[in-house]
């Protein structure tokens, strides 16, 4: 699956985009976050406070219990500040 990071999540993970292949038991956004945290110290720091991280699955906002699957585009970012 394709993972995208924006704003300070991009800065902390050090990547804007990465292709990952998590284990089969990673089936929700929340489980994916727990797994991504183990990829690097930067990832762990980016997801340290999960309350301020928002997610989107295939470009729609998604809660932590939303399902994720192979082929999905999943993005992580802080609460939005446009307008």
């Amino acid at each position: 699956m394709k993972i995208l990071y924006f704003a300070w999540l991009r800065q902390r993970t050090g990547v804007a985009e990465e292709e990952v292949d998590p284990p089969a038991d990673v089936t929700t956004v929340g489980a994916l976050v727990d797994w991504l945290k183990t990829r690097s110290a930067g990832h762990a720091e980016a997801f340290a406070n999960a309350k301020v991280v928002r997610a989107a699955v295939n470009q729609d906002f998604a809660a932590t219990d939303a399902p994720v699957a192979r082929g999905d585009e999943i993005a992580f970012f802080p609460p939005v500040t446009g307008g």
């Binding site: 924006f6 704003a7 989107a56 906002f61 993005a75 970012f77 802080p78 939005v80 500040t81 446009g82 307008g83």
Partner: peptide, 8 residues
């Protein structure tokens, strides 16, 4: 758009 459009 201030709460749903993904801008930072």
């Amino acid at each position: 758009l201030k709460t749903r459009a993904p801008f930072w």
